[in-house]
Design a binder for these strands. Structure first.
Lengths: 339, 339
DNA sequence: CTGAAAGCGCTTACAG
DNA sequence: CTGAAAGCGCTTACAG
């Protein structure tokens, strides 16, 4: 049977451009990589031909051959919290600038899906993974990923002691600042609103206790009301706090979104944060600027945090043997109208 | 030179398990694919060996060989808007359930980065792309991606006439319902707050006009105040609207986040939405439930929208020749406290 | 049921 | 400077 022309749908490869340009495929490959080994005249012609043929680089093939990858995985526990959305955007921005493309997965705090997506990223040969771990993530995950041979950057929620790279914020310091401010404004009874589990919760609570202690006011566990770290939680928590006797008129919140929930609960009672009640959030999410009223909060610059995380992973990818990196954003008290 | 054992760092391949199991690599491949061609006894042994050797499937190699891909790209214009975050989560969830992993990119309404990330997804051989286009995206993009041979699903923002798949919401219907409600509550002057450009804006504005018209109230362009579709925009827009004479005490917003900004502006003036001013949003973002006060809005179920989009892309991937799919979510008026 | 062989689209020594 | 050849880790007809 006579050899027929291949179907037009076949993608054009370096062989095609090599033939059309009258060079070998090695030459084409070199040109595509911008190698100085090829005379500019030849290179120009090859590029020309590639363009007219509609050649598109097959990165998968290249990555397979050279055992590299330009893909990095980022797994987020709770994208419904704008804090994490902002972090994600920061990560993705930095990654893209560095020539990587991001594989994104949302775990929704589910450990099983977290395990599954990490596996999936491994099969994809991600060059690295940045992980905002779901609550309850076992510390062994770090070792597991290390055994896989893929660089890991843990983000926001620490996994406890270990030799992994981490970028987060100085949580005790943040709540310390917030509590101190409220105390300084003359509040004797200040509550701690929302949050319920996890290392971050403990850290934030500890900063609150420390400020209390330093000011010589006794810790009263009636004033810390646990709740899910979201709007609904903040809403409920504030309701409970308001029931305490004697009355409490100030609180630091686990994070901004629980503060938003608290704001709603206050509004419902015709109370206004700032005048009737002093409320301070944590994170400084973009929305905090235009909540009702604008939220005083602990600024940890979510977007910048994401960029730092991406950058830290990138340097780890390039320097596998470098010492452990730990970066803690320095929190800053940002006063708006709620306190 | 004597042949030495290969370094331990070399990843184990099907050849390794084939050797260890005493079968050919074809057999291993078949076992891995769960082919019924292999006797269960053999298959079991192979799986056993693979596990003890720590074999991990190299999907990139497999995809290259069979020219397939289990990766789909999703490009989002504005992740700072919780609406899109919720949509993204819906998309990712559905994709993961279907065995795909998502390549995510954020354009921040920048056409150049949009072009760049789409190119990048093409090089990665994404099996499909779901696109929430940046404002100003040329209609030609649809043809371009079609020429690339990669299935495309346009989401939320239509690109005008064309034969591409689309899932979004019935925008005119939504604002029509909102406006009608406000008019029915006795408001003679109802404003239209926020938004400024794009097809979605025009569609939402048209629904507003239609309701006005049906009610026999004249359209007054003094009552539509343009602003960026975010909190800041809503905040400013409400300020302007309040300056109109005679006073206006009701408005439908371009979307929920502009409504949130408006809520803040109201609060600053000691006005409360619901009693002093009637405000209706659009989207029904999760946050709307606990804003201050809870926001009445047009519900288009962001998460479900995302899932539908992913599903539509998936069926397109499987049926390239099927007729065009267009799905418009039916908006529903959801009354809470702001109106 | 299982094996030998070709091939996916690249890259990278190695010659010339 | 450029070409011929081997190989990345798989899959898939094709034989047997």
């Amino acid at each position: 049977m006579a050899k027929t022309t291949t179907a037009l749908t076949r993608p054009v490869t370096i062989m095609d451009v090599a033939n059309a340009a009258g060079v070998s495929k090695s030459t084409v490959s070199l040109v595509l990589q911008g190698s100085p080994l090829i005379r500019e005249e030849t290179a120009g012609r090859v590029r020309e031909v590639a363009k007219t043929l509609g050649y598109v680089y097959n990165r998968r093939a290249a990555d397979l051959r050279r055992n590299s990858s330009n893909t990095v995985g980022v797994v987020i526990n709770d994208l419904m919290n704008p804090f994490f959305a902002e972090v994600l955007v920061g990560i993705e921005r930095k990654l893209m600038q560095a020539g990587y493309i991001t594989l994104m997965a949302h775990t929704n705090e589910n450990l099983e899906v977290q395990q599954k997506v990490m596996q999936s990223m491994r099969e994809q040969h991600a060059a690295g993974i940045v992980l905002c771990p779901a609550i309850g993530t076992p510390r062994t995950l770090v070792k597991q990923v290390r055994d896989w041979g893929i660089p890991l950057l843990v983000m926001v929620r620490s996994l406890g002691p270990g030799s992994y790279d981490f970028v987060g914020s100085d949580n005790p310091r943040g709540t310390y600042l917030a509590t101190q401010h409220l105390l300084g404004a003359g509040h004797k009874r200040v509550g701690f609103l929302g949050g319920q589990a996890g290392l971050v919760y403990e850290q934030r609570l500890s900063g609150y206790r420390k400020a209390l202690e330093e000011a010589g006011v006794a810790f009263d566990d009636k004033l810390v009301v646990n709740a899910k770290p979201n709007r609904q939680g903040g809403y409920q928590a504030l309701g409970e706090l308001l029931a305490r006797k004697p009355a409490v008129k100030a609180a630091v919140c686990y994070n901004d979104i629980t503060a938003f929930g608290a704001l709603a609960a206050l509004g419902e009672r015709k109370l206004r944060a700032g005048s009737d009640f002093a409320l301070i959030g944590f994170d400084n999410v973009l929305d905090a600027q235009h909540s009702n009223p604008p939220l005083s909060t602990i600024d940890i610059q979510p977007g910048a945090l994401g960029e730092q995380a991406a950058q830290a992973l990138l340097t780890r990818i390039e320097h596998p043997e470098r010492a452990r990196q730990v970066q803690l954003a320095e929190p800053t008290l940002l006063l708006r109208q709620s306190a």
